[in-house]
Structures are given as C-alpha cells and as structure tokens.
Amino acid sequence: MKYMLLIYNDPAREPAFGTPEFQAMMEGYFALNGRMTADGVLRGGEGLKGVETATSLRIKAGKVETMDGPFAETKEHLGGYYVIEVADLDAALTYAALIPSAAFGTIEVRPLMDYNPAG
C-alpha cells in the first residue's frame, strides 16, 4: 500500500542554516533517502519552499479568488512529503519515525487512495 508522509514543522523550531544541528538534520535526510531507496520503498518526495512563497486560490460564484499565503495560518507548515509503498501502517510508521523533522515537528501518515480497487 502507498502512504504519503506529510512533514509539518514550525520554521521557528527548525535548526538554522549553517549550524551543526542543521548539518545533522540534512545528513539524517540523506541517510533516510538512501535507506528508502535501498529498501525499494521510495516512490517520490519533495521539499517545499516556505509558506511566504505560497499562493492560495478558490473559485467563488465562478470567479477565481487568489490570495497570498497558505491554506491555513498555523504555526506548523507543510514543508515536504514522501510517498512510500510498504506492506502496512506499521511499516509506514517505522519510516516516518526516521524523518529528522519528527524530532521538532509532526509527520502525518496518510494512505493514498487506490483508484483501481478491482486491479
């Protein structure tokens, strides 16, 4: 089953660029990427630029409304994601716990929808 691991964190609590903590975090991500690839479970993943670069839109009465900012103003922002394919939720949680940002943010684990259940 495929799961998306959504990485939420508060930028104020994230290690600052150039510090040893930042270096350790990046090494943690490189190690995890290597492990997921070696285990054959990695299906995708990206990091996102900060919410100050986000633009949101919705259609109201047929008119596109465009707004500056993310969907919800919260302290913790969606900062990136992985998509992995593993046997069950326990396996997905094991990888989620290896994401360095779990130490100061929150990882939300969501199964992906299967559009071809008869497959």
Binding site: M1, A87, D88, L89, D90, V109, P111
Partner: peptide, 14 residues
C-alpha cells in the same frame, strides 16, 4: 481497513 493497520502481534522492539 483503509490505513491497513496490521493484524499482527508486534515484534520485540515494539
């Protein structure tokens, strides 16, 4: 069912 929570007895580390 949807999140596929395993039907299993956890192993020693967990």
């Amino acid at each position: 069912a949807a999140a596929r929570i395993p039907y299993a007895v956890p192993e020693p580390p967990e």
